[in-house]
Design a protein around this nucleic acid. Sequence first.
DNA 1: TAAATATACTTGCGTTCGCAAGCTTATTGC
DNA 2: GCAATAAGCTTGCGAACGCAAGTATATTTA
Lengths: 148, 148
Amino acid sequence: MSELNMISAFRLLQAADDFKARLSGTFAAVHGISVNEYFLLLHLKQAEKNRLPRVELARRLHVSASTITRMVAPMEKIGLVDRGTGERDARMALVVLTDTGAEKLSEAQATFEDHACYLFEDRWSESEIDQLSTLLGRLVSGAPGNLT
Amino acid sequence: MSELNMISAFRLLQAADDFKARLSGTFAAVHGISVNEYFLLLHLKQAEKNRLPRVELARRLHVSASTITRMVAPMEKIGLVDRGTGERDARMALVVLTDTGAEKLSEAQATFEDHACYLFEDRWSESEIDQLSTLLGRLVSGAPGNLT
DNA sequence: TAAATATACTTGCGTTCGCAAGCTTATTGC
DNA sequence: GCAATAAGCTTGCGAACGCAAGTATATTTA
């Protein structure tokens, strides 16, 4: 039944868009970072040795390589990330999470948690959230650099 | 359990972002429109008399009013939408879906359906998709201008 | 009724993004 | 080992966006 597929996809996009819009406002106001910058820090945090090449970040955030270059520059300036060199490949300019960046991420995580709780609050039982999480998990299981 | 809430929210954002990225590429290549333009047409299609004020479109698409102005201009030029005037409020410059726009939307719907089917294909049973759809439906039920 | 406020839309300006081109370094083929 | 190709990163340029200001119309208030 393809109609059901379409409705699911609509709701997926709309639910994510609404959530992201609310999140975006709070992040900008409270932490002074964008949602994408938050995810960038998060990917670094979960990466081996807290560092990733720019191309990999571009793939994971669904943005171009040039966007990563321009997104990282100011983050480097305020000390959230640092620039590392590839050990075996001198082309790579690795993005490295700093202690300051990890701290900023930690603060943002608290905000994210607030929003995530508010998203389900009240009307949702734990088993329902678990169901949703499991189903969504199957959608992202194949994605490169899965955050969960 | 807030950890579970966060994981669900992560997966929601990631699943939607992945899907949207794939959709975006096909829409641009096949139909020459963006995902946002597709949703704009869709909202018009489901609106009474196939027309909506620009402010309402801005709210639903989570973009600014100026973005709607600049997004609609080229769509008007190629005949996808038309400009209507509010009957009781002369400030409103309503965006009206044309027959050409409805046809373009219909073509895009087919593409969307393809992607939606591919998203769940194989590994998903109908009851699982139904579960996901129901759960996501509760997330968007409060949203203004719900598409489903 | 007249002034003050609010709403819908547009435009100017600065910022951000993707694409294409260029630079540097790795890898492949002969 | 050297030329040819590929991969990672940066930069120039045009397109798209949000914010703030401006215009026009509605609504509220005195």
